[in-house]
Write a protein that binds this DNA or RNA. Structure first.
Lengths: 172, 172
DNA sequence: TTGTTTCCCATGCTGTCCCATGCTATCCCA
DNA sequence: TGGGATAGCATGGGACAGCATGGGAAACAA
């Protein structure tokens, strides 16, 4: 049963294919470099990674050259002539940094980026569908805990939608 | 409508890929010179940088010989025979200054330009897609803060658009 | 001349690229 | 099902290109 439901979950998520999934550990080495998880690196184009400082979390949003588009597409709901929209567009197109990844999979992060996510000690990469994020393991853990708490809160609702086949079988 | 604006945003960003992105620190040296970030300098043609005093911000807009075109294209929305448009066209074509960049990547800014952006102490270069801007680090930081405030203000709207696959699935 | 600007030389350094080594996870075959 | 072979990964570190920075000399303006 697990294989079947897994496949359904994957297909559902891949309506727009989830390219970056899963969590991986990482850390800065003595020279301030970090290894991009091979799983993610394989999905990047041209040995480049694009990085953006998340607007309201101590995270770095990472992806390929599509990252700017993904971030800009957030603004679709805002009025075209809104000042807020203009400033957000500026900060997104200008704020994304292009970093090189060497052929052992490492990249070195400028200090400004390291500071934004308070990168130090154990770090973590986490898939987010069309991009992935980098942050401290502690922060990512706290997000996971929050997600689990939310899941517990909405347990029944989630269950009802998670296993439709089981429900129909049970009810028949 | 949202689909339309999304497409516009995507096309706008991808039709001509963002050449100038990221933020870099800088400062004036004892002789009033400033180092153009290598990342930006590599994308300039002919070792020249074109500079324009931003109309309503203490920033210098910098780019290559395309800068004039980009600035003039702002006027596309104005009536062709409007007096204001004529004035603006004059100011743009006449106001853009061409500066030389020496082979160590430095350029020296005329006093008028320095004054316009109140350049002193720690400065910053920030990508803006087809061009980049130069200003004090303090001013650029304030712009970034404003963007983050705007993002917080429209948080729900932005969130809803960040994960389109999940939303479409839910609504289907 | 005197002051200012432009160009270029020189030096030390930092970041980038890449090599090398040992390890580990995976695959395949007995 | 166990174990050997192998490809890919983790990690350290060396070498060098390019960068940051200071400053001198020539060209130019006042």
């Amino acid at each position: 049963m697990n294989a079947a439901t897994d496949n359904q979950a994957l297909q559902g998520a891949s309506a727009s294919p989830a390219r970056f999934t899963g969590r991986y550990a990482g850390k800065l080495d003595a020279k301030g470099r970090i290894v991009v998880p091979p799983e993610f690196r394989q999905r990047l184009t041209n040995g480049e990674v694009f990085v953006f400082q998340h607007f309201d979390e101590p995270l770095l949003q990472c992806g390929d050259d599509q990252l700017v588009h993904d971030l800009l597409s957030m603004l679709g709901g805002l009025d075209e002539f809104d000042d807020d929209r203009a400033i957000l567009e500026e900060e997104i197109t200008g704020g994304v940094m292009r970093l090189g990844v060497d052929d052992t999979g490492r990249t070195s992060l400028p200090k400004a980026l390291r500071d934004h996510a308070a990168l130090e000690g154990p770090l973590g990469f986490a898939g987010r569908g069309q991009h992935f994020v980098l942050g401290t393991a502690a922060y990512l853990d706290s997000r996971r805990d929050a997600a689990r708490a939310a899941a517990a809160k909405h347990r029944e609702t989630l269950r009802a939608r998670m296993l439709p086949s089981v429900r129909s079988r049970r009810s028949s």
